[in-house]
Amino acid sequence: MSGAEFVPLSLSPLIIGCLAAVACALPGNFLILRRQALIGDAISHVVLPGIVVAFLFAGTISATAMMLGAAAAALLAVAMIEGIRRFGRIEPGAAMGVVFTTMFAGGVLLLELSDTSGVHLDVEHALYGNLESLIWLDATGWASLFDPTALAGLPPELFRIALVLGLIVILLALFWRPLAISTFDEGFAATLGLPVSTISLGLVIISALAAVAAFDAVGSIIVIAMFICPPAAARLMTNRLGMQVAWSVLFALASAVAGFVLAGYGPLWIGGTNSVSAAGMIATVSGVILAVTALAGPERRRVT
């Protein structure tokens, strides 16, 4: 394929898909080790009401308002889950089920009841995004990568997800040991004087940030799939935390690239004429990777 076609149409969605996948997979490692995989599920469901409420307040779809609204919704969801769990003495799975279905339902109704006709905001977008539409019209070929005017025309989602991924990488590098220790043995971490509840909350906030930035581009489905599938597959490959995180990044990238290519070009190879949903295909590929590691990963079996 020529650069003149690939660069404007496929390069930026591909990069955005990769960045989003990695940004979700990184915190996902700690979520699954903390038995909080479904917090990722809950967060991605409540991003929608957060964005709708932010829109109703701000009146426009600005990136900042969306980020703030979604992060606030994630925090509210976590606070409600924790409150129901602790004060209502309800097991966490059920508490999550109550909270995220309610918030999602509230978001859908608010969206239907408010006049959002002028903006690009609807349930379908919330569920599976629109990765394919994030094209780079100013590009003419590979040379555009060095052309400042063309670069300025890159979709803003690209910068947003890159920024969030950068933040996540820095925070992970800084707080790696406290995060690892408190994930492994929270009681011990508390006796070390580590602020375990803050760390736990910090992980949720980071996950929410990743979910919002990724959601903007790829929808909730990829967000949940990337929170869980690459880290889960990685867990079956190794018994060391650092290696697990490395594998999860590799799997996330592989899912994003293979999923995007298969969605865009796969149907053409088998004689079809239209491409299929890239977000759905990325989630599907991550599932295939998980299935393969579950059947053949070197550390797939439980020891005890």
């Binding site: 080790l33 690892a180 994930t183 492994f184 009681g187 018994n239 060391r240």
Partner: peptide, 10 residues
């Protein structure tokens, strides 16, 4: 019994 013995640490 208070930790996750399946945790990926050496």
């Amino acid at each position: 019994a208070s930790v996750d013995w399946d945790f990926p640490v050496r």
